[in-house]
Simulated assay, not measured.
Amino acid sequence: MDHGNGRLYVGHTLSGAVSILDARSGLVLDHVQLGKTDAEGKTEHIRMIEVDEATGRVFVSSPSRSGTVWIVDTRNGNAVQRIDDIGLWAAGLAHDTERSRLYVSGGGIEEIAVLDSATGERVSAISTGDTTEPGAEASRHFLLNLALDPGGRLFATDASTGRLYVFDIETGGTIASVPVGKGILDTVFNPQRNEIYVTWRGAGHEDHEGTGGLAVIDGTTLELRSRIDLPVHPNSLAVSPDGNLLFLTVKRPLDKQHPDYRKGASDTVMRVTNDNAPPARDGAGPVTEDKD
């Protein structure tokens, strides 16, 4: 979301495109095709989108074996800059406005590439140091999603271990790793409450029947404050600007063998309130579910 200009950027994962919408009217203002289609008719996928509201640049990742990032200049006719060979499975994105840095996470020896967000030039990398050989088979981590602490930390969910990794962005060193759960997915930092939120699905590629939840982690001690069990499957996170509302998407099961599968079921959005109401559900604020 570009709040200043009222523009919403919507990613079309399988078709490799981004639509630009007027947030008030819902009208589609433009449609930018990023992914190329090969001879077999397969189109490069896209995954995450980050917006630099100050410059109008929009960053988009593609989790391929070599890793690609596109930079769309919305103030220059949506001109596209393509950056290849970012790194294995370039999936997560985090943009640091103050430092003019774009962090791109995935797997491989250097799990996080650090780019100059103005030029797209690779300036450094952050690594756990655990992977010593190139290639997907040798990669010990897959850092799926990122969240930035303006104070100088970077949070990364590791799909391979189910842990949240915390890095120092100045030194590139690992501060800590916090166990969360199988199928760990998204993370977001709430500076107003000094909390880190993490979703996990409780399921993986071979086990589709697990259920996950929401983890609340103390931003100072990095200790787990609470775990809130949620319906299948907890997914993406967003925090309101005042820090008092957490929005969480829940994806419906697609596997017909899953015990919670329902034909025609819709995905849902949950709203977790952080107010002064009595504690509920293992110390967290009351949870209400809004269904479309």
Rank of each mutant, 00 (worst) to 15 (best):
D2N: 15
H3Y: 14
H12K: 00
T13Q: 11
I20Y: 00
V28N: 13
K36G: 06
A39K: 09
E44I: 06
H45R: 14
I49M: 11
R57M: 11
V58M: 05
F59P: 06
V60E: 03
G67K: 02
T68S: 13
W70L: 08
N76S: 14
I83G: 03
L88M: 11
W89S: 00
L93E: 00
H95N: 08
D96E: 08
D96P: 06
S100D: 13
L115V: 01
D116C: 03
I126E: 07
T132R: 13
P134G: 02
A136E: 15
R140E: 15
L144T: 05
N145C: 01
L146N: 01
G151I: 03
T157P: 14
T161C: 14
V166I: 14
D168M: 11
E170P: 15
S177G: 00
S177V: 08
K182A: 02
K182G: 03
K182M: 14
T187M: 12
T187E: 12
F189V: 01
P191Q: 07
R201A: 15
D207G: 06
H208K: 15
V216S: 06
G219D: 07
N235E: 13
S236G: 08
V239K: 05
L245Y: 15
L248E: 10
D255W: 11
Y261V: 05
R262S: 04
S266Q: 13
T268W: 08
T268E: 10
T268R: 12
V272M: 10
A277L: 07
P279S: 11
R281Y: 06
R281K: 12
G285T: 01
V287F: 01
E289N: 04
D292R: 15
